[in-house]
Design a binder for these strands. Structure first.
Lengths: 197, 197
DNA sequence: GTCTATATCCCGATAGAC
DNA sequence: GTCTATCGGGATATAGAC
């Protein structure tokens, strides 16, 4: 399943990431992880204390990767609107859902402060990052002063997370795109008339 | 757990609804349902073919209830904006998430056409219902013609679904409210200047 | 580090007595 | 309609050999 040059702990973490994404924490068993990683029972428990420990390593890595990806897009060139647009239109595995956001629906993740922490931190970071861009756009006169950066940023993040829900419900990525199109139209309407990019 | 006047099948369905809401399909076992309902093993399998059969009855009822609740709010008085605002601000058990939307993150629900159908139908119905209101607002000159009803309606539904994600991530209903506030500000900006309610 | 064996419990269901 | 018994398998480890 993985390159022979990848160490056993590494294969275990990567396997856990994929299974958490596909089936969630509750739906992922140690046995399934071992089979996916091509590792034995004893091997897994030698490197990790148990399922929660391994899941924590996997979730942390997924969270970090998501922050890096988002930061690269949001830190690009262009107006505030353009950068938010880039983020909203970036390529996504829409039907698989958000590997971080989906964990909020996992009762065992939410019940554990340790497992939930990377999720909270990542979504908070993303919202603040976008809020900063909205604030920039506002001070440049691109957006109306009426917009509250934190509120708009929350709406942007929520639309993406909810877009995944609509896509998975309908079985088509188009539902995600439709929600994003609506948000972009609303954001465009909130731009001040003079300055267009 | 329930009134003695509720029949066993009824208690089983209601218990399943609550457990599906709290723990999802994968995280809900027949045994847990039986204990919650105060019913025995044999009793459950007498009234229902198995876990999927019982879950289907529970999901259908939850979906129907959600449509009725939403329809009551969306069919109220006032401008298009006012009715969408009422929907967005209606009371919710925010930290528990959406009992319908959360099912889209359940791999076994998505894998089953029968179990997924009520979810798809409900979210589609909701989007169309809201799109009709946006269309009304547009033809009344309340909203810019630039708004595409289906797109805006998808954004509204997505913001709500994503709002649940943000709330559960942060452990506070306030995150939901923030996203809604942002959306309402954007919708307000898309209203045509002359007609205000 | 990795393997197999073992343990205890739960899962989802069936069978048949009452 | 409800109960208990039973089933084959999986969940989540621990123990100890190699």
């Amino acid at each position: 399943m993985y390159s022979v040059f990848m160490s056993t702990p590494e294969r275990l973490i990567e396997s856990t990431r994929e299974l958490l994404w596909e089936r969630g924490y509750v739906g992922t068993s140690p046995k399934a992880i071992q089979q996916h990683a091509g590792a034995g029972q004893g091997s897994m428990y030698h490197h990790f204390a148990g399922k929660p420990d391994l899941a924590l390593a996997a979730i942390r890595r997924t969270a970090e990767e998501m922050r890096a990806t988002a930061d690269a897009v949001l830190g690009g060139d262009g107006s505030a609107y353009a950068r938010i647009e880039s983020y909203l239109l970036r390529e996504r595995d829409v039907l698989k859902g958000c590997p971080v956001g989906r964990l909020t629906m996992d009762p065992d993740v939410i019940a554990s402060d340790e497992l939930r922490a990377p999720v909270t931190e990542t979504l908070d970071w993303l919202r603040d990052r976008i809020a900063g861009i909205v604030e920039e756009g506002r001070s440049q006169g691109e957006f109306t002063d009426a917009l509250v950066p934190q509120d708009i940023a929350s709406t942007v993040v929520a639309t993406v997370q909810g877009g995944y829900v609509l896509a998975r419900s309908s079985g088509s990525p188009a539902a995600f795109d439709t929600a994003v199109r609506g948000l972009l139209a609303l954001l465009a309407a909130a731009r001040t008339p003079p300055a267009r990019s």
